[in-house]
């Protein structure tokens, strides 16, 4: 018996957003490399190494990671539990009974707002047991938060 992955995918726009983040990181590296090339003019070996590094970063963060993350990042909300899966090299699945949920936070960064996305963080009494869903469609996130708050309010106990 093993756990199946959670049912729901995050928004496909999240894939684009992660790729844009990769492009931005590559751009920063390119500018840094360009400055070094112009002012320091290092040995050819260093130049080649730099080019190789930037290529690897570009391929990794723009072409590969967003696709993998989109496949891995999943979530599911049922009547009595929250289930999330995230990660890239290390995949982490977390399940928390709703009766143990303490707070539900929504977070929208600048880029997330541009893409109409939200991150939802569900915390429990364990400082190391928070569940995070990144790249949710904003309306879906609002629905999730609403459902969670309604159910948590209805459940008894102090969630410890």
């Amino acid at each position: 018996m093993d756990l199946r992955p959670p049912a729901e995918l995050v928004s496909s726009r999240a894939r684009t957003m992660w790729a844009v983040q990769g492009v931005m990181l590559t751009a920063v590296l390119l500018i840094g490399g360009g400055v070094a090339w112009y002012f320091i003019d290092p040995d050819t070996m260093w130049k080649l190494l730099g080019i190789a590094l930037i290529t690897v970063v570009f391929v990794g963060t723009v072409l590969v990671a967003p696709v993998l993350r989109y496949r891995i990042h999943r979530w599911e909300l049922t009547d009595d539990a929250v289930y999330t899966q995230r990660g890239l090299l290390t995949v982490e699945q977390r399940i928390a009974p709703i009766s143990r949920v303490q707070t539900v936070d929504t977070e929208r960064g600048v880029l997330e707002r541009f893409f109409g996305l939200s991150s939802v963080t569900v915390t429990t009494a364990s400082a190391k047991g928070e569940l995070r869903i990144e790249g949710l469609d904003a309306t879906v996130a609002d629905r999730v938060v609403h459902e969670l708050t309604v159910v948590t309010a209805a459940s008894e106990g102090d969630a410890t």
Binding site: M1, D2, L3, R4, P6, E76, T78, D80, A81, Y83, I95, A96, P97
Partner: peptide, 19 residues
């Protein structure tokens, strides 16, 4: 054995997520 142990840790909530 992952599913079994998980459902022993939080009984009653894991079964729905098993294969």
């Amino acid at each position: 054995q992952v599913g079994k142990l998980a459902s022993q840790i939080v009984p009653g909530h894991i079964e729905q997520f098993l294969r």
